[in-house]
Amino acid sequence: MEPILQIENLKTSFMTSNGEVQAVRGVSFSIGKGEILGIVGESGSGKSVTSMSILRLLADTAVIKEGTITFEGKNLIDVSKKEMRGIRGEKISMIFQDPMSSLNPLIPVGNQVAEMILEHHPDRKKEDVKKEVLELFSRVRIPEPEKRYKCFPHEFSGGMRQRVMIAMALANKPDLLIADEPTTALDVTIQDQILHQLRELEKEYGTSIIFITHDLGVVAELCDRVIVMYGGLVMEEASIDDIFEKPGHPYTMGLLVSIPDIKQDKSVRLMPIPGSPPDMTNPPEGCPFAPRCPYARKICARELPEFIELGEGHRTRCFLQYPDAPADEHNPFRR
C-alpha cells in the first residue's frame, strides 16, 4: 500500500522547569491510503504528542528535535507556517477529545463548519457551501440539520458536538484524519454511534484515519493496524488480528489481560501490570517497560532493544524475541 504519511525517527521534547521531558523518543511509522491506524498507549506514552507533532500544533515549550514527517513528498517539519495552515483542515484534519473547547462558543456551529470550507476555498459561493454543510450534517447524523445549523455549541450535547467536529474535519475531504481520543469523553452508546460513523466515512471517502486511544476495545472495533506506544517509543506494530491473537510484546500482553472480558470468570483475579509508568524527564536507560515487565532480564534494563520482525507488518521491540533469547520458563514467546 502506498503510504500517504510517513514518520521517521520523530523526537519531540518539552522544555519545562523540571528539565527536558522526552515525550517522543524516536517514533517511526507510516499510514497507507484508506487505512485506519490505531495508536494505543497510556497517558504519557507520547501518543498525543506524536499526533500534535504531525500538524505542528504543539505548545511553545515543545521542540521537535529530530525526524522527518513526509506527507505528499514534503517534510512537514520544514514547511512554512503559511503552508502548514494550508495543509491543516484541508489535507490533514484533526478531532480532539474535548469537542467543547475546540468549538468557538460565540459562533453558530453551521457557520463554523462553513468557515472551515471558505477558509481553504474562498472563491466558493456561500449558498453552495451552506448546502454542503447541511449535507455533511446529515451525513454525520445530526438530526434536523437546517435547525441545528444556527445553534450554538452549548446547545449541543457532547456527542452532538463531536459530530459537528467530525463534520468540520471532513468538510474539505482531507486525505488524513487524526482523531485524538475522540470518544473518551463520551458515553458508550454515543461512542458506539461515533465509531460506526467513522467506519462508514472511511469507506465512503477513503480517508485514512489515525485513531489515538487508550482503549483496546475501541481499537478492535475500528482499526486495521495498531501501534502500541510506551514511554515515548513504539513497542509493537502489527495488524489488528495479530495484536490480539499473538501479541509480541509483554506490554501488549499485559494490556490485554488487565482488562476483564465481558465474559470473564469473576473468581479469576485480574492480572494488572504492576507499578507506574516511567517519568519522561528521566527515561529509563534500557527498555522503558523493563521495571514493570514480569519477564525482564538484566539486559533489558541496560540496553534498548531494536525492532524484530515477527511476520509481515508485525514488528516488536523486545529482547525476548531475539533469536538468541533463551527458551526458559520465563520467556513467554519461546515456551
Partner: peptide, 22 residues
Amino acid sequence: MENRWEMLESSNEDREKLWKKN
C-alpha cells in the same frame, strides 16, 4: 561475565519510584 539473560530483579520500590524531586 554476568549472564545478560538472567532475570532482572525489580522490587516494588523500583516500580513505584518517584522521579520528581521531593
